[in-house]
């Protein structure tokens, strides 16, 4: 009773790495707080795979079934049900599309506090206090809950699971929650898997990232030429992928890929936090942006305030000339 519940998210049938890492972080925080950790799984999964979450710290794995759980609101119904039965004190989610949205709905449902974008979990005097990053990561706010239940969304890529995770299998319990009417008023009608093939941006030593500052899809040729000269590949922001300028497979960030090239050159990218979480592990970051206030300059090693159309072709020429 009164422990920590972690939402273990299934994507395309497997647990996300982020939720396994989060389970382990919750186990560590729970050990200090004197709280055990359970996992909530929504959707079809066999007993073996569910019990395997024991290796990452789960004592009991609650599997909610009987629905597709393919969007956030059914997850709210399922997790609220578990909280009501088991009296969890804290419920933790990773910052995925479903995870963040479900966390917000759950906090409202339970009249619980909600901390978004948490980057650290601490035991302070027997309570969970999270650190949330703010103002372009220039400050960490220590957030405590004033409610009986606390809901946390942990920033993407904060916790990675151990390679050699070991532990006894978790107990598995299954239930079929009732869904609220509004959860049923929405239907997922189709899914377009990300097209694979082409260059794997995760493998490239050099990435030239293009954003909406390019102005039009054709301008990606500038990034391709620069990447070509450097022997690298081209990455993109969600803004240009959503707009259909560049393929989904090249997207870096919270909903895209996480990359750690030796060099990342951001061209016409504002540097929103959801892009940053996917590329901040790069060795060297260079940014070209005409807006001196763009957040990207807060985490670039070299920031150039200027017009990409003037700078990028010239840089490409200079690099080519070195042969």
């Amino acid at each position: 009773m009164g422990g920590i519940l972690v939402f273990a998210e299934l994507q395309a049938g497997t647990f996300t790495k982020g939720s396994l890492g989060l389970l382990e972080a919750a186990r560590d925080a729970g050990a200090s707080l004197g709280l055990t950790v359970d996992a909530a799984v929504c959707g079809a999964i066999d007993d073996g795979a569910a019990a395997g979450l024991g290796a990452h710290g789960a004592v009991t794995v609650h599997v909610s079934e009987g629905h597709a759980f393919d969007h956030a609101q059914p997850v709210v119904d399922a997790v609220a049900d578990l909280q009501a039965r088991e009296g969890y004190r804290y419920v933790l989610f990773g910052a995925s599309i479903v995870g963040s949205d479900a966390a917000a709905g759950l906090a409202v449902r339970l009249d619980a506090g909600l901390v978004i974008d948490a980057v650290e979990l601490h035991d302070e005097g027997g309570s969970l206090v999270t650190r949330r990053s703010g103002l372009g990561d220039s400050v960490l706010a220590h957030c405590a809950f004033t409610s009986a239940v606390g809901v946390v969304v942990v920033r993407s890529n904060t916790y990675a699971p151990a390679e050699d995770a070991a532990g006894s299998p978790a107990a598995v319990r299954r239930s079929t929650p009732a869904l609220s009417a509004h959860a049923l008023a929405l239907r997922v009608t189709g899914h377009e898997a990300a097209e694979q093939g082409g260059v794997d941006i995760g493998e490239a030593d050099v990435l030239v990232g293009g954003g909406r500052g390019l102005g039009k899809p054709e301008a990606f040729a500038l990034c391709e030429a620069l990447a070509g000269a450097l022997g690298g590949a081209v990455a993109a922001t969600r803004a240009v992928v959503d707009a259909g300028w560049y393929p989904y497979a090249s997207q870096v960030g919270q909903t895209g890929k996480t990359v750690t090239p030796k060099l990342y050159i951001a061209v016409g990218i504002s540097g929103a936090i959801q892009h940053k979480v996917g590329m901040q592990g790069s060795g060297t970051i260079v940014a070209i942006n005409k807006d001196a206030n763009a957040p990207i300059f807060d985490f670039a090693d070299l920031g150039v305030v200027g017009d990409l159309h003037a700078i990028v072709p010239k840089l490409t020429e200079l690099i080519r000339a070195r042969g």
Partner: peptide, 23 residues
């Protein structure tokens, strides 16, 4: 009416030296 409370502020680690210049 809030359910969270900011108890303290601290500085996150920074990336190290960076250079910013105007073209």
């Amino acid at each position: 009416g809030s359910r969270t409370h900011v108890s303290a502020l601290s500085k996150p680690p920074t990336r190290g030296d960076s250079v910013k210049l105007e073209d």
